[in-house]
Design a binder for these strands. Structure first.
Lengths: 196, 196
DNA sequence: CTTTTATTTAACAATTTTGTTAAACAAAAT
DNA sequence: ATTTTGTTTAACAAAATTGTTAAATAAAAG
């Protein structure tokens, strides 16, 4: 079976990903996606049958990629602190490129159906939570419900990037200055999470 | 001029607010809004002329209310720590009722135009940032760029509530257990923000 | 009681968005 | 060179969504 593979399929998928997750245009039409990709709108149906299926494809791929990288960090044979540093870097990189990915997931659960989050495996997270608990016994971390530790980590990483457009206005800072601030986040977050 | 004032206008506005900000249905149609409010769709046009104008009305009102309450906290004649506690309570209450409000703002800036965030006054925030700086000199707070302090505060408050549906799945916890966790956030956040 | 005015509704029209069909095109296989 | 197969496109159809008009309803004013 000779596939010509003109790259159009991935082009459409990557373009949709950019519009949805990077630019936050959650209700981009098929026409807008096709235009941004520079292809005819019919190609979109040729490869994905419908708008919803394109959306699903983009979504599953992105979530799988991210949760894969995160699980890799969490399950690695490294000291706890190193794992956290890895997680911060992976997550920060992803959130910088695609700040609206998780927001999108959460607000689209109604539309797309819960199967999207149902097949997110809870096991790697649970193992990691156990490890967090151990660190609390060691005194490396404040003794709180381990879930709070993870929520704190994700919050400190994600929220500033989601709110970037608002913060630039609110704090009257340039795009450059904002990037600088984000560059400082890793150290700030580490200091907040670990009791020195 | 005798206004009958049947309450329909506010009913529509409150219903739209609920759908948009509480349930996260950012692209609810006029029909869905009308149905949820139990009125004819034409009433929606009668009071607001178009979908966009309804959206704008809902938006401006919500943002004004929230920023008003926040400015009140920040400008109050109270000790710094008390102000932060007030802010946490105000914000936590608002985010619990309407978790998607800020997300909505940020992702709709493209569509609704930047005038929505342009008339958010930066002054109260700037005054407060100065105060934060003073606290850092006093040693009450870790010495970092003051903007980080505020980003940390807002992140720790908002993100867990935005991600609630995802977290309940990821951490395998009930709605009740999740509410309990949120109830513990104030103390957790205070501990993280202040160097004891 | 009648008139006026605000509100609500049904019916219709216009626009936008999605989806389908069939034809045109281009590269590989025979 | 011709056939086959995969890809792209234009034209068309269907559905969903918004917006308008005019009639029906009901409450207040005269």
């Amino acid at each position: 079976m000779p596939l010509k593979n003109t790259g159009t399929e991935t082009l459409i998928k990557e373009t949709a990903k950019r519009l949805f997750f990077a630019e936050g245009k959650l209700h981009a039409t098929t026409q807008e996606i096709a235009d941004a990709a520079g292809v005819n709108r019919t190609s979109l149906h040729y490869y994905f049958r419908s708008r919803d299926l394109l959306l699903e494809a983009v979504f599953k791929e992105a979530m799988q990629a991210l949760s894969g990288r995160m699980n890799e960090c969490m399950a690695a044979e490294k000291p706890f602190r190193q794992k956290i540093e890895d997680l911060i870097e992976v997550f920060l990189k992803d959130m910088t490129a695609f700040p609206y990915q998780e927001t999108f997931l959460v607000t689209e659960i109604n539309t797309l159906g819960k199967e999207l989050i149902e097949n997110i495996k809870a096991e790697p997270i649970n193992n990691f939570l156990t490890e967090v608990k151990e660190e609390m016994h060691n005194g490396t971390l404040e003794k709180i419900e381990p879930i709070h530790f993870l929520m704190n980590l994700f919050s400190l990483l994600s929220y500033p990037l989601i709110m970037a457009p608002l913060y630039r206005q609110l704090f009257q800072i340039s795009e450059k200055k904002f990037s600088e601030l984000i560059g400082q986040r890793k150290e700030i977050i580490l200091k907040m999470l670990f009791t020195e």
